[in-house]
Amino acid sequence: MSSTEQGTSSAAPAEPTTAPESAAAPEVPESFYYVHGKDKVVHKVSAGALQHSALIHGMISNLGYTEEQAKANPFPFENIDGDILQMVVDWCNQHKGKPTPPEDTNLPKQKEKLFDLVLAVNYLEIKELLTYCCKQVAMMVKGKSPEEIREIWMIPTDAEDEAAEKEAKKRAGKEAAGETAAAAGDAK
């Protein structure tokens, strides 16, 4: 695996020994784990931050990796985009060992990003972040008329949806017919 190792965020320490939170804690060196997303970029995350994710936490406790083993075998999350995973890792680091606030205002406002984040968080089982994301989605729906919701979320009406589906089928049919005609021409 060709991996580019990088620190996760400015809040996260470059090396475990210099971590400010571990300096405050009495002499317990913090262990680190490694994760990568679709883009194969490896993110270094402390075990404390990873506790937010029930999925990763379960994997760590089942595998019993040492830090060296963890470094050699980063957890692969091929279904999560690199930038989304970065967002998740940042959030976990920021909220490491802290009580989660009632709301988080740093979530992405663009719907594609937000939905990708929701899917990643749901997969990684990060309950608090999922709550924030879902709340944000709900807030974007609240107080809007069906037309406004359709426009914001780019949801076609049933009629538009049906027409688009028919059109797509028609186009696919035409393309398939064209391909077979071309293949027949080639065979000749």
Partner: peptide, 22 residues
Amino acid sequence: MGQYLVKNRGNSPDLANLPDTV
């Protein structure tokens, strides 16, 4: 409304095809 005539399914997630837990 023309821009919505592209069926918004498949690769990018939309409100309708999120998991039920969500």
